[in-house]
Write a protein that binds this DNA or RNA. Structure first.
Lengths: 192, 192
DNA sequence: ACCTGAACACCGTTCAAGT
DNA sequence: ACCTGAACACCGTTCAAGT
């Protein structure tokens, strides 16, 4: 769950094509949005369109692959923050970093929304990695009594990603996301 | 802004076709989702597809028309709640009703998301009506000092609709939305 | 085992012809 | 003024043929 999805042994050319597809998709998604035609991604990668489908059966799977490193980094960051002096600040810091990244990348916000809303097996790695990261920090803060107990990691993730998704694209997206996250964090903290 | 978009005088048959299109779209969106082919909606309404495009140039415009009555009702409800004894409870009640409706209707949640995220003129009626409703209740609560002053009506709407959108479709959607809205409302209230 | 481009089915949008 | 179905362009997905 904390390790990326298996990388089956691929023939050298297949491996190279897969990497080109992910790189091309990253650029094209960023420039032209997440609804860009699949054929355009294949063309940008210099491979046939059927090769794209063979490697990434759904657009969501491709989106997940594009953001694999960021998702891994968010998970690693959550492990670091488990050592933060204040449990609720550890959680708040992680959620803020998540919201900041999502609010500046429609592509990432969409990848996370796909993984959090649907149950699809093609995005289970993303869903489980994010869930593990959030659950560890949330659980610690709840045990310390600084965050309300009547909420789950899945709900917190949906809420914060919804903030990112709703602010993305607008003017001043980061600032807006930050403002909304402050509201959410205040709501998450236990009442005295 | 508080009145629905102009209903230009239409010939009797055109008027009837427009009503059939809205009714058909409401049913088809509810049964098969908001991405259903436009041709299927026209067929369900018993009119040619070009008639659909003539009347509703974009899918968003059609979605807005489908939810016209609900949006009107939400606006009317906000006017009623301005007379609630407690300003922050008036706001909380309205936001809860909004979240409940959105979390049980992907079609409504999508219509609102379209109107709140984009600046498109084709959904300006929805955006402005919702904004007027939220702004009145929020302003009253902020003046009373019970809700934090550093947030705008547009931000509150995005946040609450994001809650609806994120919970919609899942199991126990209403309950989940209610839970998340409690968190959001706690975050919105001024700290003592 | 993997790649390719073409074929196929489908959908959004426009338009010439009708009433 | 409005309606219609067909035409057109485009996109997702599959498949026969290649290496």
């Amino acid at each position: 769950m904390t390790t990326p999805p298996p990388r089956p042994a691929l023939r050298a050319d297949a491996r190279r094509n897969a990497e080109r597809l992910v790189s091309a998709a990253r650029e094209v998604f960023a420039e032209r949005g997440v609804d860009v035609p699949m054929d355009d991604i294949a063309r940008a990668a210099g491979v046939g369109n059927a090769t794209l489908y063979r490697r990434f059966p759904t657009r969501r799977a491709l989106l997940q692959a594009v953001h694999r490193d960021e998702i891994d980094a968010l998970h690693a960051r959550s492990q670091e923050l488990l050592a933060a002096p204040s449990p609720d600040e550890g959680l708040a810091t992680w959620l803020r970093e998540l919201a900041m990244q999502g609010s500046t990348s429609r592509s990432l916000a969409t990848a996370l929304m796909n993984a959090l809303k649907d149950e699809g097996a093609d995005v289970s790695w993303c869903r489980e990695t994010m869930h593990a990261a959030a659950a560890a920090l949330l659980d610690r803060a709840q045990r310390a009594g600084s965050v309300r107990g009547d909420i789950t990691a899945g709900q917190v993730l949906k809420l914060v990603n919804a903030v990112a998704f709703a602010t993305e694209g607008g003017p001043d997206a980061q600032r807006q996301a930050d403002r909304l996250l402050t509201v959410v964090m205040d709501g998450l903290r236990s009442r005295d």
